[in-house]
Computed example of a mutant assay.
Amino acid sequence: MAGTVSPHADAVATMTAWRPTDRTQEALRQAYLGFLSARPDACLRSCEAGHITASALVFDSTGTRVLLTLHPRVGRWLQLGGHCEPSDSTLAGAALREAIEESGIPDLRIDPVPLHVDVHPITCSLGLPTRHFDVRFAVRAPANAEPVRSAESLDLQWWPIDALPPDPDGVGGIEDMLAALR
């Protein structure tokens, strides 16, 4: 279809336009751009070298709590998110789709400017060791939103931002995402 944006083209545009203030985040932004330049398949989960993923740190309407999922494969409380799908045209759209699917909350609103990026090793759904180049977005839930756990989660819970679950080795990166907002 003429005029259709692909997740890859959007990832390049998003990473090109984004200007993080943190030097480490800027270095990662440059690495993402290099990876995207080298790999036209960077947004496909079949890209064994690693692939771009999109996640959403969902805040309640007051901004004082975040919605986290107890991830069944990682065994930790994490933000919502996952792989880009063929139906996704943008990274923000993929993050929003994942957030709605995994939270059961309609009418979520996403800030299309990345909040944070992270690269982490993982054994993905293909059963092979790979890396997720995760682009993270801030999402706001409507007032009185009640999440509904999906089959992709062991549990789903609102956490006060000043009383987050333990993350002893920083795998979740939620503190880093919150620091990016300050």
Rank of each mutant, 00 (worst) to 15 (best):
V66H: 05
V66S: 05
L67F: 01
T69A: 15
H71Y: 12
H71W: 12
H71C: 15
P72I: 10
P72Y: 10
R73L: 14
G75A: 11
G75Q: 13
W77P: 04
W77V: 08
W77R: 05
L78C: 09
L78K: 07
L78D: 02
Q79M: 14
L80V: 13
L80N: 09
L80C: 06
G81T: 02
G81Y: 02
G81I: 02
G82M: 04
G82E: 01
G82C: 02
H83G: 13
C84K: 06
C84P: 01
C84M: 13
P86D: 14
P86N: 12
L91M: 15
L91P: 05
A92Q: 01
G93I: 03
R97L: 03
R97I: 06
E98V: 00
A99S: 07
A99C: 07
A99Y: 04
A99H: 05
I100Y: 02
I100A: 14
I100T: 15
E101R: 07
E101Y: 03
S103G: 06
I105C: 14
I105P: 11
I105F: 13
I105W: 08
D107C: 14
D107I: 05
L108K: 08
I110M: 05
L115T: 10
L115I: 09
H116V: 11
V119K: 06
I122E: 15
T123Y: 01
C124A: 15
S125T: 10
L126E: 13
L126P: 00
G127E: 10
P129N: 04
T130C: 09
R131D: 13
D134N: 12
V135H: 00
